[in-house]
Amino acid sequence: MLRAAHRPLGSSGSMLWLCSPLSACLAGGRSSSAAAPSPSGGGGARRGSSNGRIIAPESASVWRKPEAGRLKLNFDGSSKHASRRASIGGVYRDHEGGFVLGYAERIGRATSSVAELAALRRGLELAVANGWRSVWVEGDAKTVVDVVRSRARVRAEEDSRLCADIAALLPLLDDLCVSHVRRQGNRVAHGFAKLGHGAASPRVWRDAPPDEVLRYLQRDAEGEGK
């Protein structure tokens, strides 16, 4: 289990937005506030009235498209219960739901939290390597998402190392939106993570996704991710 102490994950010059699918990830423009504005009719993240904390809206149930000009990363980690053999995967898509890039790899024996954090780290590394500076990050491991959003520091040694790696990547992005989605909205990333178990070496797909995830990619793009 991922245990967190509320200390900074790391200093960052980037803008970290706490968001839901109905926040600034779907609305145009940046904000000078740490909280992202919501589009008309949406209930986006807001500041609490007493202590200025960011209040994140309820988790999403389905995958949602990002705004134009922003890419969306969905990540997932997979750790088999008995053997603890783990793999990671993730997918980048554009504002039309179009496939941009996917990745998958085995990471040896690991806990589920290590797998989730490693999947996120790899996704951010790919964003930096490709020069993508505006990214909406989404995962179905709520504890991991909460750790990134609150800049908390975890106590387990391997989790802490991965969080430090993630913190070092954040300043390399202009703005970063982080949200939680339930498993059914993260099925494409889960499919890539499953592919990682059988990958002899790290894999990256560009432009053309593997057949195993095509059905869910199409459903998400058409708004049928149920």
Rank of each mutant, 00 (worst) to 15 (best):
A4Y: 01
H6E: 14
P8K: 04
P8M: 01
S11G: 13
S12E: 07
G13Y: 09
S14P: 04
S14K: 05
S14C: 15
S14A: 15
L16V: 12
L18W: 12
P21G: 04
P21T: 07
L22R: 12
A27Y: 00
G28E: 09
G28N: 09
G29L: 00
G29E: 01
G29W: 00
R30F: 10
S32V: 09
S32A: 11
S32Y: 08
A34D: 15
A35V: 13
S38H: 03
S38F: 00
S38E: 04
P39R: 01
P39H: 02
S40A: 12
G41H: 08
G42L: 00
G43W: 10
G43R: 11
A45L: 03
R46Y: 14
S49V: 09
S50M: 10
N51T: 08
N51I: 01
G52P: 04
R53K: 12
I55S: 12
P57N: 06
P57K: 06
A60P: 02
S61F: 08
V62G: 01
W63Y: 14
R64L: 07
E67Q: 10
L71R: 11
L71A: 06
K72F: 04
L73F: 09
N74G: 09
D76F: 03
D76P: 02
D76I: 01
S78Y: 09
S79C: 13
K80R: 15
K80Y: 10
A82E: 15
S83E: 13
R84H: 15
R84N: 14
A86R: 01
G89R: 06
Y92Q: 02
R93M: 02
D94G: 10
D94E: 11
D94N: 15
H95C: 13
V100E: 09
V100P: 02
L101N: 03
A104Y: 03
I107S: 10
A110H: 03
T111N: 05
S112N: 13
S112L: 09
V114I: 14
A118T: 12
L120P: 03
R121G: 01
R122S: 03
G123K: 05
L124M: 15
A127P: 07
A129H: 11
A129T: 09
G131R: 11
W132R: 08
R133I: 01
S134Q: 11
W136N: 06
V137L: 14
D140F: 01
D146A: 08
V147Q: 06
R149L: 13
S150W: 02
S150P: 01
S150Q: 14
A152E: 08
E158R: 13
S160I: 00
S160F: 03
L162V: 05
C163E: 10
A164L: 08
I166W: 06
I166G: 07
A168Q: 11
L170R: 14
L172M: 14
L173G: 05
D174T: 12
S179P: 05
Q184S: 12
R187E: 11
H190A: 13
H190W: 02
G191C: 08
F192G: 06
A193H: 07
A193K: 07
G198T: 07
A200F: 08
V204G: 09
A208D: 15
A208P: 00
D211T: 11
E212L: 08
Y216W: 13
L217P: 03
R219F: 05
D220P: 07
K226Q: 12
